[in-house]
Design a protein around this nucleic acid. Structure first.
Lengths: 213, 213
DNA sequence: GGCATCTGTTAACGCTCATTAACCGAGCGC
DNA sequence: GCGCTCGGTTAATGAGCGTTAACAGATGCC
């Protein structure tokens, strides 16, 4: 079985492929109960087929997870790179580039909560080669942020900037931990809040501590 | 450091019990490869006994995870409550109470990275009753923070304060995601950095956005 | 009309793995 | 010395689950 249509051409049609259906449901289930916690029969049932029928679309359960994780980290990176490039081309100052990165990440965090969760929960379940790939994409994405942060805070050590970027990812990725919707502000309010918090954290990177008492 | 002289029957000696050995190694392994990803034989091997010998100390694999998660969320909560009480008794202003909570959480995040990881990764694997207990402890801990944050930012909506607290937890708990040590600042530098970032984020809760562009 | 491909189905296989059974030496109270 | 509990051991059990086999109904090409 070869990849018949692995690269879906940008036809732009809203028709959700069976493959895509499966990926979406698998992401949801994996995020809810963990990769090992959900059986192939459940995934099948979630899209109306049952059990081994999935093997007509994927080489195995691992392959689904791999595609999800490579997909999310790839989109995060390319999306971030695009935003940085566009901002740079428009001659935007570093601070605006940072805004662009933050807003882009917030969109991911709010729209793809399941994937954000999987992204750092199930990395260990991947085959070595896939894990290397995902790690590489993650590293490149972090690097985008670190460069911008270092422009804004030239006095900060690189290792501090990197740790701060990771910390801000933790902050932005916190939404999945909030209980059922209703406990959290509406999408726009939440986005605005996360934006303020992230900026507040990163602004605190610069000035030397001024330790209180 | 705190002596974890948890009330164990007929113990009381500073010697590390077999039970405690097992819990520590299990925590490390669970954090590394996930609850389902590590077998009972591996846990046994990590403490020098093999396989089913663990059942002389625990009712089962689930029981180990339950004890770990209940333990960490319990210690987080009681530690936080103690700090708040002490600060209040000393007549400290809300801002200082917040400092105490932040520093306490940072100690946990830096000293018990494995447990912090498990804490929100494997909650779903618990039996219903244990999960309820852990959730309750978590909720009470969050409430400690929310109260203090609301004193500092009376104008913020409660739902915003709660979301901000979750976000700051994400920020503070980000250290496990940093690669091997060496890539991150030393323990004291890291603590100071996290402290500044968390304060920066929470300070940004207050003022109305003043949205740039 | 025939046949190949695509997408399903159900049944069977095989492996992993938590748990239990059965057994055993070492202390130790008496 | 006797017997009881503790903390181990290895072998067996049994369930769950990913995967593969074998088969079948459309669909469409020639």
């Amino acid at each position: 079985m070869k990849d018949a249509a692995a690269a879906r051409p940008s036809a732009g049609l809203p028709a959700p492929t069976r493959r895509e259906q499966i990926l979406r449901e698998a992401a949801r289930l994996f995020a809810e109960r963990g990769f090992h916690g959900v059986g192939v029969d459940e995934i099948g049932a979630a899209v109306g087929i049952s059990g081994p029928g999935l093997y007509r679309h994927f080489a195995g359960k691992d392959a689904m997870l791999a595609e999800l994780l490579v997909g999310i980290s790839g989109r995060l990176f390319t999306g971030g790179r695009r935003r940085v490039a566009e901002a740079a081309e428009a001659g935007a100052p570093p601070r605006e580039v940072l805004y662009a990165l933050i807003d882009g990440h917030i969109d991911f965090a709010l729209d793809d909560r399941a994937l954000i969760t999987l992204h750092d929960r199930e990395l260990g379940q991947l085959r070595d080669s896939d894990r290397k790939l995902v790690r590489s994409l993650q590293r490149q994405y972090v690097e985008l942020w670190v460069e911008v942060v270092r422009e804004l805070h030239p006095r900060a050590l690189e290792v501090e900037a990197r740790a701060a970027v990771h910390a801000v990812f933790g902050l932005l990725n916190s939404t999945p931990h909030l209980g059922r919707p209703g406990a959290l502000p509406g999408r726009e309010a939440m986005a605005a809040l996360l934006r303020r918090l992230a900026l507040g954290a990163l602004d605190a990177l610069g000035p030397s501590p001024l330790l209180e008492d």
